[in-house]
Amino acid sequence: MDKLKSTISNDFHSSKMSESDFKVLSEFIYKEYGIKMPPSKKILLESRLQKRLKANHIDTFKEYCEYVFSEKGNETEIVHMIDVVSTNKTDFFRELAHFEYMNEVLLPSFTSQNSNEIKIWSSACSSGEEPYTIAMVMSEYNLQHSPINFHILGTDISSAVLHKAENAIYAEDRIKEIPHSILRKYFLKSKDLTKPTVRVVSEIRKKVAFCRLNLMADNYPISESFDIIFCRNVLIYFDRITQEKVIGKLCEKLKPNGTFFLGHSESLLGMDLPLKNIKPTIFKKI
């Protein structure tokens, strides 16, 4: 009985985060990863980090803070902490500013240079929302300008998500934020009302090729070079040395003057890379 009580109490036990521990963690998460953690998010942070305490067999947030900032924690725990803290959503039209920049600056510059072909790589494409969004942006642009032929490659380390990407079937709640004009043109609703899903139309699906790729691999089996590379919300999974290595390798596949998009909470600060910052999270290859 006592054993059972203790198991139950352990399962329901959750550590409390002091104000000063919150201050340290929130300051760190914001300054290093750009994820804002105002005091109103204390409960959210406290609850999300409970599983990290449990995974590390740590009882208090004080000990957890000490661990995160220790040499071992620096190497292994920060990635998990940021993973838990960031929402990791891969919505359509996520971080809209990048697609606006494509539409308003990049594509017109292609048109003015009479370029009629563009190659784009979504390097950590997950279940396909990003490359399909890019294809929709390109199609919309082509409706109003002299068309640019486009090729999009989507890669990810996980075969399971790539399978989902190829199928291009999504739950209806994933498309809530998409404007109606886009929805009508590029998504088909399922007939089964009990399972409301949508599927990206074949005209968009066939513009994207998917293949499995581990960004940490020594060699990328991709022979072509790209005009635009998206590498968003993936760096948080790597330590800084690996981040620099991965971005350096992606840059080798970026054409001179090509554009590199980074996630809103990521930074290339202090890294030695052939990239010039144009706008926040937008870079040009130099």
Binding site: V24, F28, V68, G270
Partner: peptide, 20 residues
């Protein structure tokens, strides 16, 4: 802990400038 972390990063960045 957080101040030591940031100071270490500053040392790293100054060394990086030196190396470059």
């Amino acid at each position: 802990v957080i101040i030591d972390y940031q100071h270490k990063r500053l040392v790293m960045l100054i060394n990086k400038l030196y190396d470059s």
